[in-house]
Design a protein around this nucleic acid. Structure first.
Lengths: 237, 237
DNA sequence: GCAGTTATGTGACAGTGTGTAACAACATTG
DNA sequence: CAATGTTGTTACACACTGTCACATAACTGC
């Protein structure tokens, strides 16, 4: 499996941030695995498909990767996004989802063989990788929560707040975020349609919760209210 | 994290069954970890809560366990069910969800310390455990798909077909299933209300897809149609 | 510049599922 | 046996979101 997205999305409750957990990144460096080739991949390129045998572990350097599944009838679901610093392709040898870029992306490609060698030599390294997968599972659980129990407003707020917290964790301002992906990707991630996403952005703007000069830059005007929304503290119950 | 539910639920596409993967079970036996105490737990008892430090790995012997999360305002989401043969509590040291019994349940409790000792002594054992977590991640992804893209009919069909396939994988008949949990658990698992679940059962019965003498026994009358529904081969797109 | 394509925003309307409620079936208890 | 509680079922009005249609904006290549 797969993805890992260290400081992962979905945090409706946002009580606890996923572990920095990137303890694995320095370990990769220490092992000289960084010598692996850096790949420059155009937007909308497929890295792998569900069911593929995995060939590489990727570390995202710049850009963004989208992890998704597609139903037989064509309906698509976005499971996660991976941003710079995130590792994708950990987990099992058979990919549990598709992966494609949503931007011009630079990736560090570590062959699976080299990765496995490193794990065999250093149990602690394997343990760190396992923790990453466990974090991805926790993130997936949170995604289930967001999609099954939150309203459109709450889902978008949850998405934006996760990006905000990620910024914060990386030493950037939590008061604004960049959206590298298109509306359709956001919609498929949140289990909504692009029209609903669009309308919800507008609603947030009209309510004074956010400001948007460009389509892909969101400035937060009322972080507290957005966080309450994201946490699912709504009226119900 | 956590759960593992070997032959896990959610298989809308059902193209591939999760690995038997229970390769780990015989390994547990070989290590004498089976000597661990068997616990008999009443219905509706909590095994652990989200955020708890995990103390044991559990192997379900009889009964059924429900893995869930709860939002601040009380809304609950069921993430997975664990049935006899399934292992729960693998993954990280901090529980990513609540776990409670939905029946009188017998569990084999393996202290985490003993489990970790076994992993340290035998890397292959740890590898098998990791595969279990990776399978759980894949199952969680599938759950996201089911909840975000399938209709109420398709969701219930997906749930029933997953149980049917589980029966099949265990050498039982795929033509009927037992529902150990209550309607509310099913509803919270599928992201629906208990009324909708109830109505959908009735619709299935009226359409001749299933027969139900008792509330917790479902006999399939048209497996092909149910499987098509579960796969999300609906009209959309 | 202009046409053509892609991405996004907005509006009217319908449909699915929700929520409330009342009711039925069954078990447990006094 | 009546009383109470739990679980499951059914009915109906309403709200949210999806669908469909079209408008607008941004970017492309010519």
């Amino acid at each position: 499996m797969i993805n890992i997205a260290a400081h992962s999305f979905h945090d409706a409750t946002a009580i606890k941030l996923p572990q920095p957990a990137m303890a694995i990144a320095p370990m990769l460096a220490a092992k000289g695995l960084h010598s692996s080739a850096i790949r420059k991949v155009a937007c909308n390129e497929t890295l792998w498909c569900e069911g593929d045998e995995r060939s590489h572990i990727f570390v995202v350097r710049t850009g963004a990767v989208c992890l998704s599944r597609t139903l037989p009838n064509g309906r698509r679901i976005v499971l996660d996004f991976a941003y710079p610093g995130d590792i994708i392709g950990l987990g099992a040898d058979t990919q549990p989802c598709d992966a494609h870029t949503v931007q011009l992306t630079r990736l560090e490609a570590i062959p699976v063989a080299a990765f496995k060698r490193a794990v065999a030599e250093d149990p602690e390294f394997g343990r760190q990788a396992s923790i990453q997968v466990a974090n991805a599972l926790s993130a997936a659980y949170q995604h289930v929560v967001v999609i099954s129990k939150l309203s459109a407003n709450e889902r978008l707020a949850s998405f934006l707040m996760a990006l905000s917290r990620r910024n914060e964790a990386h030493g950037l301002s939590p008061m604004s975020v960049l959206l590298p992906m298109k509306r359709l990707d956001i919609a498929d991630f949140l289990g909504l349609t692009i029209e609903t996403v669009s309308r919800t952005f507008t609603r947030f703007r009209d309510a004074g919760l956010i400001a948007m000069d460009q389509h892909n830059v969101v400035v937060f005007r009322d972080l507290a209210k957005l966080r309450a929304l994201a946490a699912g503290e709504g009226e119900h119950d």
